[in-house]
Design a binder for these strands. Structure first.
Lengths: 337, 337
DNA sequence: CTGAAAGCGCTTACAG
DNA sequence: CTGAAAGCGCTTACAG
């Protein structure tokens, strides 16, 4: 800790240079009309010449606004979250916000810590995909500090907070009916973490669609997995060893679907021709896996973008009432199949 | 913009509650020994009871340290950068730093803006993968503000700045020699963006290895692509239509290698058996693509982790001299092949 | 072990 | 159109 920063330039230095007051410099920096064009020009020149760097901590302290938002995701390896993060970063940038990023690794402790730290930095708002098991109290700190909070993808019980996410069960019901319509009778539900609420909803849509069609539910066709390529890869192989293997799978999401497709290729089964695979999300790589993959489109980029918009809306109009946006996944059928 | 935040609690409020001074509360909050245990306990209780949230902007303004670092990457869709980001976030968290994130989309303007904004937030240091075309002047602002900067993956001319990245040409030379040793004579170099310096280096390693072995260089075997699955997918198909298609490819990186493998599967060619594919990076999904994929391991997680460590080292000891860490990629041979 | 005072670099009424 | 003054919420010598 020998970090002795050289004293940095301040508004006052600029002011002294020009023989005007810091107040005027402050105004000029933000191009306020009330400062004469001549003075403004002089200020900008001096700023450039001296290499002045605006100090946002000071401004933030003074104004109580930070033009920073926080994004907290469970992880940064799953393309769902990284595409979402990318979209949020873009939207934030568009509106002049900087992005503070943290991941929880599904750990409520880390989540609590990340949330607190962000509030300590006076973020103007927080975008959060709650870690598994998150309760309303975990989020109470946002309300206490009056910081807008928008949840995405995973709701938390309680009516108080803005939320945006897909209609999970409707999506998988759509997919399952589609497969039934194509004549499949042995349809499996592949992947997703045990105990995940999202998985439960997606499974429910699948189950209901089978039930409607009077197709018996076979628990051997219901398999959890890591939400990774490898997870899908492993589980499809297990399914293929069944006495009566399925002829189609509704997958928890695109990543597990890709894994399943790789598994099929390894067994010389051509997905999309010999075997139907349906994904969920429509992450960007899904386009490549077409035409063998059908997916339920509810792209992370769109969720991220809209969530960020909603948050910024909340920041600007904190009095608006709570809102839930439920996106209806669309079944993307590709050329062939 | 009607955002009227309620006045938030301050140290002074806590102090008043307890009938002590703000100075003491400040000390107590950081558990300084010089405050009696009794007082400290009382302070912590009051903090909890009143829901006090520490204001880091104020502290930062006062101390001139922010415990924040900035990370700037070209994009957040490529798994290379997201795995790296994930590793950086973890390392930052371990050392108590928060992470400000920005992406440049390879745009120098955006990069300049991101860099400036981060410095305005007084980040303690910056980790940067320079956008294509970045010059030393672009980075001058870090030196001017005395903010440690660590570059990764892509060097920038000039000896002044810390850098960490792989030995690109050595890696691809290794790979190419390996393929030659296996008896391949028609080896292509697949993917990577035109004009990318990294691509140039990787291509050079490949070229030199062929040269050493007196294998003629055929420019039809040298193909640029988007650095995406789809890029690799397209290019492999082009290569397969050649009169004399290659029997092996050294790919620009793992992502393009995966794309190539998908393309091979579509053509019922089994990578790893009928055709050798070599990737670069060893991103986490590479494990899954084994045993059909051989890769040059220089994992983004390691680069991110070490870059973050180096940056934190620099923050703590700004007087240390510049360092370049060149990682030597290791050829990971998988079981079969 | 605790308190009074100054100051970090801004912005914002208020006066002129 | 410009300046003087107060204050945002902390931390840090310094005194006691």
């Amino acid at each position: 800790m020998s970090g002795v920063k050289p004293p940095s330039l301040t508004l006052k230095d600029i002011a002294d240079q020009l023989g005007i007051s810091p107040a005027t410099v402050s105004l000029a920096l933000r191009n306020k009309e009330c400062v004469s064009a001549r003075t403004r020009r002089a200020v900008w020149e001096a700023v450039k010449r001296l290499g002045y760097v605006y100090n946002r901590s000071a401004a933030r302290l003074r104004t109580q606004r930070s033009t920073t938002i926080g994004l907290i995701v469970p992880n940064l390896l799953n393309p769902f979250f990284t595409e979402l993060t990318s979209a949020v970063e873009e939207k934030a940038d568009t509106f002049g916000y900087s992005l503070l990023l943290a991941k929880t690794s599904e750990d409520r402790e880390r989540q609590a810590k990340a949330l607190r730290t962000m509030l300590e930095y006076s973020v103007d708002g927080v975008l959060l995909c709650p870690a598994v098991g998150t309760t309303q109290e975990d989020l109470g700190i946002c309300e206490k500090t009056n910081t807008p909070l928008v949840l995405f993808t995973r709701p938390v019980d309680g009516p108080k907070v803005d939320y945006i996410g897909p209609d999970n069960s409707r999506g998988t019901a759509l997919a399952t009916r589609y497969l039934l319509g194509k004549g499949h009778e042995r349809i499996a539900f592949l992947g997703g973490a045990e105990g995940s609420f999202t998985r439960w909803e997606r499974y429910e849509g699948y189950r209901k669609a089978l039930e409607e069609a009077h197709v018996p539910i076979d628990q051997r066709y219901n398999r959890v997995s890591d939400t990774t390529l490898d997870g899908g890869f492993r589980v499809i192989q297990e399914l293929l060893t069944l006495e009566k293997p399925p002829t189609a799978v509704v997958c928890f999401n695109d990543v597990t679907a890709f894994g399943a497709m790789l598994g099929l290729w390894y067994h010389h089964i051509a997905p999309g021709r010999d075997f139907d695979v349906i994904g969920f999300d429509n992450i960007s790589d899904a386009a490549l896996f077409s035409p063998s993959l059908t997916t339920l489109s509810c792209p992370p980029r769109r969720i991220g973008s809209r969530a960020a918009e909603l948050l910024i809306e909340r920041i600007k109009h904190p009095d608006k009432k709570q809102e839930s946006i439920i996106l209806v996944p669309e079944l993307i059928l590709r050329d062939s199949a």
